[in-house]
Write a protein that binds this DNA or RNA. Structure first.
Lengths: 198, 198
DNA sequence: ATTGACATCGTACAAAAGTTCGACTATAGT
DNA sequence: ACTATAGTCGAACTTTTGTACGATGTCAAT
């Protein structure tokens, strides 16, 4: 549990696991690690693996093949990039999205997340054309949150939310555009993160 | 090779592999997929796996346990977040970084990449305090590239580069600060991508 | 009616892989 | 000297796991 004080050997084994996983897409076996680390006995590696698990650097997958998986805080989920905003979190079971965005699974799982490509300049200075945003499914949000709003015709838009007594207002960060009432739109999610290629 | 025309069943199996991998940190075994897909014969799953490999959706790891790894274009590498810019790409063998940033391995591997946390407002409007940037190790860059410059005392800075006949100029995007000569600094890398939590 | 793609089944087998055991070495602290 | 920690070894054992085989069923097109 300590998360502190890895011996040099443990550090090395952990790095080996990380690199192997990144290179191959799956963790190494005990014996593959033997080779990589230059030791001859599987038990030697197993010994270090057990310690790394105890300290929380590896997930609890003892007994399974290639069970030397990196701990979940460091693990990564691929969240789908949706072209349009679909009906809801549970939809689109087997539909192929535009691509995937890797996200660290900091707090629990990533099943409530999706990504969108930004088109247009209505949120300019905050969000640029071509940016990718990560969105969490939620039907309510607070003032100044950047939200995804879905309309019945399937169209979706990303705007900054203002909660007024009169109702919900959507304001484009780009001053060239005018704020407008949400109308029959509904909040689909909140933008929590931005990825931009420079 | 076609990458097109997945049958519904193949689509489902592929999704199962993706979800399992994201949940567990390693791909499923043939028999685990049997359960997930609701079929009883390992050969049925194997049959679909072979097809998915042929079409390029899965990597070539036939014969190995848990060899149903997602194709490398969709795979992810964890690149280290370095507090300070170290000596070079080959350094810091077993040093533990501040954290990791997931990145899709679009073009080959991600070993030439690292990440930095932005501090200060000198690049404001482009880069905000707290942003994480992904940097590719390289010692040269072009005008208008955002670069990481390293000084002999170990200090590093992120600025926009201007190549002038008189030499290299570093210009902060924030107009409050003045451009200055690179001095004895050297280019360590180029900022290629930006990740911002909102 | 027949062909071909798609999909499945159950069984069997050989290789891969996690685990365990007892013993051993080296180092540092008490 | 004694002891605890870290690390290693090699062999044996038990599952797990990928693979192969032969047979069957469905459905659409020819």
């Amino acid at each position: 549990m300590s998360k502190e004080g890895l011996t040099p050997r443990q550090q090395q084994i952990l790095d080996l696991v990380r690199n192997f996983s990144a290179d191959n897409g799956y963790p190494p076996t005990v014996r593959e690690l033997c080779q990589l680390a230059g030791v001859s006995s599987p038990d030697t590696v197993q010994y270090h693996l057990d310690n790394l698990r105890d300290k929380g650097f590896l997930g609890e997958a003892k007994g399974r093949s290639r069970g030397a998986q990196i701990a979940s805080e460091e693990r990564v989920a691929l969240i789908p990039i949706l072209g349009k905003v679909p009906a809801g979190p549970s939809s689109g079971a087997y539909a192929e999205p535009m691509g995937h965005v890797p996200t660290v699974m900091d707090r629990g799982d990533a099943s409530g997340l999706f990504a969108l490509k930004i088109k247009g300049d209505s949120m300019e200075s905050t969000l640029w054309d071509g940016d990718t945003v990560v969105v969490r499914w939620q039907e309510t949000a607070s003032s100044n949150d950047v939200v995804v709003v879905r309309y019945d015709d399937g169209e979706a838009t990303v705007k900054r939310l203002k909660v007024k007594p009169s109702g919900l207002i959507l304001v484009p960060d780009n001053k060239v555009y005018e704020p407008f009432d949400i109308g029959d739109g509904r909040i689909a999610g909140k933008v929590i993160s931005l990825i931009r290629k420079l």
